[in-house]
Design a protein around this nucleic acid. Structure first.
Length: 642
RNA sequence: GCCAGGGGAGCUUGGGUGGUACAAGCACCCGACUUGUAAUCGGGAGUUCGGGGGUUCGAAUCCCUCCCCUGGCUCCA
């Protein structure tokens, strides 16, 4: 048998016989490591201890100390769930049960489960864990495996796809129960310290709407009970920052039944924030040579037929008949902007043309998709469309990424970047795709951003760069985006006259810095836990008179010195402690406490929402520093510290 | 659209699985207190139980149906 070369994480190379398993290699490195091995990562893919290595590869051994250990353990927990399920419901057919970032799930068919079943199954799981069964890998010939799953179309499907080939396939066995599985797994069920089943959902086999509907059970598992409790605790805390909860408490917005689903109302407090957000992004667009345009919310469907939305997107559009003619609320702003461009005649000297609009769009998303402000039926995009020569894509996209970065840095947000390339079905020539993708690649390389390639995930009309935010509950939402479009210019027959005096087709760039205002607002609320930076805060300062006698002075401070800010005077006859409590609850950045002493001295006592205090401050001093904090869009109140 | 869970004062909730909706805290209104850095005290008003239909002498409760919310799935030009 020939040797293969295994490259280890430290760069060293090990020559082993082809067909050696992960565990063999671990023992080769050291007996102690061999003993501790629970699996390996082969060329980036998780593999079991008994995975045979047939070719040169990179290998990292996983032990109980590795990050991946939890992944392995959760996969084993999924098996424990499946065994427990089949103990109680032998008729259940297993489909697929992987681990996820937060735990695991198992898709099953042939059983109806409800919340009570989960509890019973959890008890069964605890028994299996307490029994500490060994988990053993075994190999079966393919024919044998197919026979085992004679009445399980899902496992047979797996055997014919992922596990296709002539080699025997692996099963993992515990207590006489077994499951087709690539592994790896922990050594015995007792290693799973704590499990919890979380929820039931419907899922489609292979994620395909046309395939069978399966029952998906989500759960999570940890090495210890305390780690599980910590996780559940963290989840509860995350729920405290949920924008739907804070939105109500801080009186920012509401989505009442009476107005319809996914149609949010922004209250005065929320609208104050939105207006600052608009002003900020309008400023960025102004600086970068955008022209502002305004378009209506409703167009003849002629326009949507021209843009292609009517063919591809009509299911999600709100349509209405007006005097025997069909109109549609706009799901996107681009057709309007393309039409504005089309109304003009352009020379290459005029390009790029950049249009910006805070445009509200309407998309009839599936009902189950609506969620707070993150997925709604009506939302406003800080939309921008650029009409550029193909050769200037790189320069324009660079400028857009700069804008996006300025936004992200200003708000101190975490994000992930994805570069999505040409899908199988697409419009536009090979040349223009190649040129555009290579330009985007260069831009990304120069940007220094960490990004992931999502090959084939681009829009049919062009490649794109997407930025995603994570909400308080760990879900990712698309935010800023840059998309190239070769389709719309065709459909609208957009042209400009080139240097060579012939007509050329511009490339269109769709871009948004926030994405949707609603969603961005959601991200900010959760990111700051309602503690908006002072420049955004609905109420920036609240003046708290010690007694009713000081209300007059409080109003004077507000009107004479702080008229340029959003300031309220707390005039209720509460104790000062109560007023402070309320201001904290309302997350007002600054409280100015004024009593007889301050009134006599013409000062204020400053307290910020994080409890820091500074007494006997001249009002003018406070005003100046507040001005600077707001102008510089500082994220945290820093008057007291600074 | 699919699966599961849910819907009662403005909010957060406890109780009520066929017999007049029983309530708590906060918020709100009234009164007293005039307060020095994270909830002063007392009183009052407010919910026909998501909508509609059915069964019943009687429905928040049982049945049907619709709406909405939550978590997932799918979708996401």
């Amino acid at each position: 048998m020939s040797d293969i070369v295994v490259t280890l994480p430290d760069g060293s190379e090990l020559s082993v016989p082809s067909g050696s398993t992960v565990e063999d290699v671990a023992y080769e490195i050291g007996p102690g490591l061999g003993e501790d091995t629970v699996g390996g990562v082969v060329d980036g893919d998780l593999a079991g201890t008994a995975e045979p290595l047939e070719a040169d590869c990179e290998l990292r051994i996983i032990t109980e100390d590795s990050e991946e250990y939890l992944t392995v353990l959760r996969h084993s927990a999924a098996h424990v769930f499946a065994q427990a399920l089949q103990r109680r419901h032998p008729e259940a057919k297993l489909a697929i049960g992987p681990s996820t970032d937060e735990g695991f799930y198992y898709d099953v068919a042939g059983v109806d489960l409800d919340a009570d079943d989960l509890e019973a199954i959890e008890v069964e799981m605890d028994e299996i864990i307490a029994a500490d069964y060994d988990i053993e890998r075994e190999e079966q010939p393919r024919e044998e495996a197919l026979a085992i799953y004679a009445d399980n179309p899902y496992k047979r499907d797996i055997l014919e796809t992922e596990a296709a080939g002539d080699d025997p396939v692996s099963f993992y066995r515990q207590d006489g129960w077994r499951d087709l599985c690539r592994g790896p797994h922990v050594e015995s069920t007792g290693e799973i310290g704590a499990v919890e089943l979380l929820t039931i959902a419907a899922a489609y086999w292979r994620g395909d709407e046309d395939e069978d509907t399966l029952t998906r059970v989500y759960g999570t598992a940890f090495e210890t009970e305390s780690a599980l409790e910590e996780y559940l605790e963290r989840r509860e805390q995350a729920e405290q920052r949920d924008h739907r909860k804070l939105g109500r408490e801080l009186d920012l917005f509401s989505i009442p039944d009476v107005t319809g689903p996914g149609l949010p109302l922004f209250h005065p407090n929320g609208t104050r924030v939105l207006r600052e957000l608009e002003a900020f992004v309008d400023g960025l667009n102004d600086d970068r040579g955008y022209e502002f345009v305004e378009t209506p919310h409703l167009f003849r469907t002629e326009l949507w037929k021209r843009s292609g939305h009517y063919d591809n997107y009509v299911e999600d559009m709100f349509l209405l008949d007006v005097k025997d003619e069909e109109y549609g609320l706009k799901p996107m702003n681009c057709p309007g902007h393309a039409t504005i461009f089309d109304e003009g005649t352009w020379s290459y000297r005029d390009l790029p043309v950049r249009y910006a609009e805070n445009g509200t769009v309407y998309r009839k998303e599936q009902r189950g998709e609506l969620s707070g402000l993150s997925r709604v039926w009506a939302f406003t995009i800080d939309d921008g469309h650029l009409f550029v020569q193909p050769e200037s894509i790189e320069r324009e996209v660079t400028a857009i990424l700069d804008q996006i970065r300025e936004v992200l840095e200003t708000f101190d947000l975490g994000y992930e970047v994805a570069f999505a390339t040409r899908p199988e079905e697409s419009v536009g020539s090979d040349e223009i795709w190649a040129q555009a993708e290579s330009q985007l690649r260069d831009v990304l390389a120069d940007s220094g951003l960490d990004w992931e390639l999502e090959s084939g995930d681009g829009a049919f009309y062009g490649p794109k760069i997407d930025f995603a935010f994570r909400d308080a509950l760990g879900r990712d939402w698309d935010g800023p985006t840059v998309q190239l479009d070769f389709n719309m210019p065709e459909r609208f027959d957009l042209t400009y006259t080139g240097e060579d005096n012939t007509e050329h087709r511009p490339v269109m760039i769709h871009r948004a810095l926030y994405g949707s205002y609603e969603r961005f607002f959601m991200v900010l609320v959760e990111h700051f836990d309602g503690h908006f930076p002072t420049w955004l805060a609905p109420e920036q300062v609240r003046i708290l008179p010690i007694s009713d006698d000081n209300v007059g002075y409080a109003r004077q401070v507000k009107n004479r010195y702080l008229g340029e800010f959003r300031v309220d005077v707390e005039a209720r006859s509460w104790t000062i402690g109560r007023k402070i409590q309320q201001a904290h609850d309302d997350r007002v950045p600054y409280m100015l406490v004024v009593g007889d002493d301050e009134e006599a001295a013409g000062t204020v006592s400053v307290r910020d929402r994080f409890e820091a205090e500074r007494n006997d401050v001249a009002v003018e001093t406070f005003r100046e520093q507040l001005r600077a904090e707001v102008d510089e869009c500082r994220v945290e109140p820093d008057f007291v510290d600074g």
